[in-house]
Amino acid sequence: MNSLDRLEAHSVHILREAYREFKSLVMLWSIGKDSTVLLWLARKAFFGHVPFPLMHVDTHFKVPEMITYRDQLALQWHLDMIVGENTPALAAKQTYPDGALSRVECCKSLKSEALKHSLDGTWPRRRMDHTLGCLVDEAKPEAFTGVIVGVRADEEGSRSKERTFSARDCQNEWDVGDQPPELWKQYKTDFAPGTHVRVHPLLDWTELNIWEYIDRESIPIIPLYFDQGKGRRYRSLGCSPCTTPVDSTAKNVTDIIAELRGGKFANIAERSGREQDKEDGGGLETLRRGGYM
């Protein structure tokens, strides 16, 4: 087994463990390369099926192609997709692009808050209706207690310290100093009522591993990651006002891999195009303690 085989088997094991242990499980899908690889790994784990819903938090500031790609793939792969958002904040224009909030506050509101209330079922959500082929309002949003998230340890400092199964209390708080032990493929799968759990199957993957795997498996990936002829591409996908494309002429997966292995990006952090990180001293820790993914 090479290292991609090992990473795959390890992530598959974690996904099956999560599916076994949690009654109400959901996987976050940001449409980016990591969560799309995660989605692919779920199809590996469950032999072509994805036996739990996917949740996408729509900030309404995503690059429009992302939404088209999301809906297409959801229909094609028979995905049970749920979409949540912070409707009141968007309606009241309480956002960074509207000039009302700082970047970090905006992230908290449109992502962390929206996610929290979409997960606990207290805010309205929409769900993909496969007979109609579009999103419809969900009649009775249920609460999820297990959330699968595609964060990687190499992304930034606080993520390098994540556990595979990580408890968050009812306030969504993360006690970084007192995390559960994990050993011998045994994870924290027992929880007091009122807590919920984040499951991180991708912690050991690097950005390079992700692209190598996309290449090996021919996973369909959103073309925003490739240069369309203007000499620019996205390396990390977020909201358009806070994510700048990087200068690159990588036109396909092979080019990206070459760029990461030895080329110009070998030593530049992936999230360097994400402005909210800089407001937090580069650590993202404050945001993440408060429920940011």
């Binding site: 190499d154 400092g157 606080s158 390098s160 310290k161 970084v176 650590g283 820790e285």
Partner: peptide, 19 residues
């Protein structure tokens, strides 16, 4: 030692993976 508490106290609190 990326955590704020770790730097403040000059001690490693949690394991970090680096590549």
């Amino acid at each position: 030692d990326a955590l704020k508490d770790e730097q403040a106290q000059g001690i490693t609190i949690d394991v970090a993976r680096c590549f």
